[in-house]
Amino acid sequence: MTKHHIQTTLNGDEIDVLVEPAQSLLDVLRDELHMTGTKEGCATGDCGACSVTIDGNLVCSCLVLGVEVGGRNIETIEGMANGDQLHPLQDKFIEHVALQCGICTPGLLIAAKHLLEENPDPTEEEVRYGLAGNLCRCTGYQKVVEAVLDAAQVMQK
């Protein structure tokens, strides 16, 4: 199988990687680049655990081919904190106990960050609909919603 040489930007770093045409971006991230923070829950776009942004657009990385992302700007959970400064959403997720097993957490954080970038002061309902693409089986969502609403307040200051 012919591999494609992809040059792209991942969390601010310019990287090179060889990818098979059928490989999803998720598989490229996890298997080729060893960025295992992005999780696979279904590989069919139904759970959101693999959420990343490409040029600021929120997507499921399982539904993107690696060959499509040349020259793009990809952000994953590994790039969310600024050095040793956690993003306010990361802080609030911990503070509100918005994570239990944690497998959905990276995807939820990426989706929540994207949500607050588009809507800095969402209502509870907007947060719930904004995160409806991310399944969480542990929390029942309440503490996640509370954490996002609280982070929105902090980030607006």
Partner: peptide, 9 residues
């Protein structure tokens, strides 16, 4: 159509 993530594509 799908979720926000799906509509992104």
């Amino acid at each position: 159509i799908g979720s926000l993530q799906i509509r992104g594509r």
